[in-house]
Structure formats: C-alpha cells, structure tokens
C-alpha cells in the first residue's frame, strides 16, 4: 500500500470509538512507549510473547481488525527483519549446521535472531496500536502538553497538516503526468530525462505545497494564531479514572512479568529462553 493510502487509512482508524480511543493522548503515548522500552530491555522471548498477547488484547478491545494490524506489521518487518534473519549465519557460537561455501548456522545466532524478531514484532505492534488509537494531530498535541517547546510543536502541528496537503498535491501532479502518458518505467525515454522529471515533480510538489501552506499559515496568523494558541477540541479533558486504570493495568502486567523473569524462571528452570 502506498504511504498516501496508509496515511488516510490510519487517520480513519484512529477516529473509531472505543474505550482505548477515548483515552487521553498523553496516556496512550507514554504507556506504549513504556512497553517498547521494556520490550527492548528484556532478553526473554517468552516475556516478549506474553507482552504480545497483552497487546493483542488491547487491539481487540479497541475494535481494531487483528488481520489488518498484522498485515501492517508484516509490511514494516522486512526492513529490520533482514538483519534478524541473517543472525544465524553471522553470529559466532556453537555450529549446529554447516552449509556449502563455509557458511555455518550457530545456535546462539539462531536464538539472537529470534530475540530480534520478537522484539521487532512487539515494538511494531505497539506502534501500530498507537497510530490506530491516536490521530496524528492528537500525538502532536500530546507532545505539546508534555512540554515540547511551543515553537517546535507549532511546526510539528503544521507539518502534520501539510503532510496531507502534500500528498494531495503529489496525487494531482501524478494525475497530470498520467494524462500526458508519462511513465517513470518507460525505457523508451532516456534515463536521465526520467530522473529529471522525478526531481521536477519533487520541486513542483515543494513549491505548490509551500505556496498553499504559506497562504493558509498567513491566514491563520491574520486571525490571531500564534505558538501560544490552543485549538479547541471537544475531546479535550482531564486525565480520569479510565486513564488511571489503563496505566495501572499495564504497570501491573509489566511488574508481574518482571517478577516472573527474576524469581520464577531461575527457580523452576522452565521457559528459560533468556539470552545475552
């Protein structure tokens, strides 16, 4: 799926209604970042699997499609996953299988690769959940409320507005090119010529978006907008009992998992999948 399509679909999903959607943006942001940090900290694959189950429960609670959530994760995984998949071949350790050309598969590499993949899945599930629960503007507002400098959060907020405008402009330019039979993969035209057209497209996209953005921004300024402005939102509210319940539940899950790692696994010896 194109980034453009993904952008609009994410925004539509984040507009859904559920208990988790209605939570304060700051709470969703902090809790999910906390889970990511814990997932990076832990070296036990079983713990990562249990965190993933908790995240799946949250996805179901948010009325989000499990299938589309995992498709999104699968689309992102190849970029980091390529490193993880190669670990059995590049990590030193006990050789468990030898391939031609002096390539060996090591058990340590296999486990390390599995750990990297597990971490990647958990952290990406967190991100997919966060992006499906909070519209981008809410994320920007949450950062502002959490103390991001006002001028920076104003640029952040404008950037998110311009992002959609930018993709609209890109689509218009693409449509105009298609109507003129322009095809970037058409080898009948010179490669440099095609490259130049791509660069002109990017330049035009910048200029058109800038000119529209400039007029919108100047209109906002003339109506009293500044970095001190607060945009009214009917959903603006204080942190309530639902937010506290979400924070406490997540904290409890993490604490229980850590107790499990620290005390139960060493005593029983079961599920000891810790590495490093």
């Amino acid at each position: 799926m194109s980034a453009e399509g993904q952008l609009y679909r994410l925004e539509r999903e984040s507009m859904k209604e559920s208990i988790l959607h209605s939570l304060d943006g700051r709470v969703k942001l902090i809790v999910l970042i906390f889970i990511i940090i814990y997932a990076v900290y832990t070296t036990n694959i079983l713990i990562l699997a249990l965190i993933e189950i908790y995240l799946i429960l949250l996805i179901l609670l948010s009325h989000l499609s499990l299938k589309s959530s995992f498709i999104k994760i699968l689309l992102i995984i190849p970029f980091g996953g390529s490193i993880a998949i190669l670990q059995p071949f590049v990590h030193s350790g006990t050789i468990i299988y030898s391939l031609p050309l002096g390539i060996h598969i090591t058990s340590q590499g296999l486990i390390f690769g599995a750990l990297l993949i597990s971490r990647l899945i958990v952290t990406l599930t967190c991100i997919v959940l966060l992006s499906s629960l909070s519209p981008m503007q809410e994320v920007a507002e949450s950062f502002r409320k959490l103390g991001l400098p006002r001028d920076f959060s104003m640029i952040f907020s404008l950037f998110i507005r311009f992002l959609f405008m930018f993709y609209d402009e890109l689509q218009r330019i693409r449509n105009a090119q298609i109507t003129r039979n322009f095809d970037i993969f058409n080898k009948k035209t010179a490669y440099m010529w095609r490259l130049r057209q791509v660069a002109y497209t990017i330049a035009m996209m910048f200029l058109r978006s800038y000119e529209r953005g400039e007029s919108v921004y100047l209109s906002m300024l003339s109506r009293g907008y500044s970095d001190q402005s607060r945009i009214y939102n009917a959903k603006n509210k204080e942190i309530g009992k639902n937010e506290y319940f979400f924070i406490l539940t997540t904290l409890l899950v993490i604490i229980c998992l850590q107790i499990f790692v620290m005390f139960l696994i060493p005593k029983t010896g079961f599920f000891n999948l810790s590495i490093l």
Partner: peptide, 8 residues
C-alpha cells in the same frame, strides 16, 4: 511554513 513543508 517552509520548514513544515520541507518536513512533509
């Protein structure tokens, strides 16, 4: 606005 557009 230039900064926001460049970021986009």
């Amino acid at each position: 606005p230039l900064m926001a557009v460049l970021a986009a």
